[in-house]
Design a protein around this nucleic acid. Structure first.
Lengths: 345, 345
DNA sequence: TCTAATTTGTGCGTATGTATG
DNA sequence: GCATACATACGCACAAATTAG
């Protein structure tokens, strides 16, 4: 250990009996020294060992201080060398790690709304993990620590547990979960989430007058996928409550469309197949069979005189997430869900 | 110590404050020099002593670099003589900087096809600049140098010239342009591009039998946008050649839909407005008015007995881009374009 | 053949950041 | 707050191989 003759030592004021913890006192002192111009960019600061010796505090305390300053973007470090002043722009700049499971028309809406509000106030780096836990893990490992916020849409085909465990290890004040709120992730963190179970239940209740024409509800729900199971639960509960027959269809395949049934599709691919089959069998949509499609897009207004949709307000979701970040809030908010009744029901 | 007059010194870039350790920086620099062809097989490289002196780093740091390269099979050594390039067969790790102008359903297809083929072979970082040159510039500045490939979709609302200049400054062997091939970007680089002018011209020629029912062609083309002007040129040329009236409509607004016209929309928003107007005016689609829509998606098959579409094969585009990268090719390939005739024409 | 200089290769010690109990 | 283990970086010393003179 060499004496660096650091005048910075004189800038650090400690109070054993202060309310705020020592590591924050150290961090704030260094921030102040930067603001006062005593430390310039690329200046090196005392090593953890040296400073902990000089101030007669634990090594961990200094390490914690430096770690915080680093996560705030003030300090940088090189193993084997030391810490240095990385940025004198103390006003925290928002660096956002945005991690989506997949791209889609709706993800685009979320992104546009999110980026539209944050605009120049933040720099957003965007990643996609394709519902694949191993990619998710790799991306997170590669970028952990470098961002002020981690905004994640957590949908996985498999390996949920490990994924949620990983998310749980992120600092909660930097975390914002989008779309889904997994109970496995604990603590107080921000979230803008869908209540899939409740949403579909209440939407169906709203559609009860139209549903009275039918006796069965069939959900087209692909197997081995990242779509949330809560949708099935919600529908099951609704059908039990209001005495509808309920079936889950994994694959439309060669099956016939049955009169007196309402078909609910979560994927657009299935919607197209479904409608082709209905047209083929010359069934009357909105009378003999009902069609409900997840996710509203303008085009659905003009298909077969209009397809009834149930949909989250994705724009609101993106905007709300941006607001939570700007206000540094850790609230959890539920996204509004809308039923758009059209002639297909 | 003798001066080997090594130009290799100029290939080694060091950053004292970089996150990755020095010995890896040195190793990566040498690997890159081999990949770039600056070092051939059996070339000797500076001795440990010499390089450590030149780079002003510890001898052990260089020794560690060389040891790693040797264990990677890149270098060989003879005690008392020196190190030399043993193999130029370096399993290059692909780091891809993917920069899209916007998100959309079709960008998703491109991305999925691209990532699907590269899969585990590459790590892909994804960025969006919202057709905004200033964001584009910032993103590129922040990430230049760190990637093995820069895959860019260049569409800008304004400031094309500066943008193309910026792209032109990227190393051509690392560049792959997607969708558009701007003449301002010179040199030999890879590209998977659309020939917008030719594509629409030839698609219209294919549709000539159906078009004979109409006398006018109207293109709904938003103003101040990133859509390529070449579409207008191609249609203009076609209409001139085959004696159609040609109009560009920037905004549907309150205008009436005219009988005997074919409407071509590039944006989906306009398609919805157009069809609503047509239904309102009780015009017969495919007889009194024709509708052609850019970009095929399955849903268009079931709108009004089918909407005729003209569309690039976005999946092919993504796959081809991935192949060009894997084969390290600098070819420019034109993406196939398809006319899908349906009842709307 | 001898010698001196250079180079690879190895071992030891110290200081530093990072991560984990 | 303490202890421990690990990777990085720097510096010094020394043996063995090679080369030049």
């Amino acid at each position: 250990m060499q004496d660096s003759g650091n005048s910075i030592l004189q800038c650090i004021h400690m109070d054993d009996y202060s309310a705020n913890p020592k590591y924050l006192q150290v961090a704030d002192s260094i921030k102040q020294a930067v603001l006062d111009g005593h430390l310039k960019i690329n200046d090196t600061i005392p090593s953890i060992n040296e400073l902990s010796f000089e101030l007669a505090v634990s090594r961990d305390t200094i390490e914690k201080s430096y770690r915080k300053l680093k996560s705030d973007g003030v300090l940088g470090s090189v193993p084997g060398k030391g810490f240095f002043i990385k940025s004198i722009d103390i006003e925290k700049q928002l660096k956002i790690f945005l991690l989506f499971n997949k791209l889609s028309e709706h993800k685009k809406i979320i992104y546009d709304a999110f980026a539209g509000i944050l605009g120049d106030k933040a720099s957003i780096d965007f990643y996609i993990y394709n519902n694949d836990f191993s990619i998710f893990k790799k991306l997170l490992a590669r970028h952990v620590g470098a961002y002020s916020h981690y905004v994640i849409i957590p949908h996985f085909i498999e390996g949920h547990e490990h994924a949620y465990q990983l998310i749980d290890s992120l600092p909660k004040e930097k975390l914002l979960l989008l779309d889904k709120l997994p109970p496995e992730v604990t603590g107080e963190y921000a979230a803008v989430y869908e209540n899939f179970e409740k949403n579909i239940y209440e939407a169906m209740e709203q559609a009860l007058p139209q549903l009275s024409k039918y006796h069965s509800i069939k959900l087209i729900f692909p197997q081995h996928t990242y779509y949330p199971e809560e949708i099935i639960q919600g529908l099951k509960r609704f059908c039990h409550q209001y005495a509808f027959n309920f079936t889950v269809i994994h694959e439309l395949g060669d099956s016939e469309i049955e009169k007196g049934s309402v078909y609910i599709s979560v994927m657009e691919r299935d919607l197209v197949i479904l409608i082709e089959k209905i047209l083929e069998q010359r069934l009357q949509v909105g009378k003999e069979v009902g069609v409900i499609s997840y996710n509203e897009i303008p085009l659905k207004k003009i298909i077969l005189n209009g397809i009834t949709t149930v949909s989250t307000n994705f724009q609101w979701m993106g905007q709300q997430a941006a607001h939570l970040i700007l206000t540094n809030s850790r609230t959890r908010v539920e996204v509004p869900f809308h039923l758009t009744l059209r002639d297909s029901l």
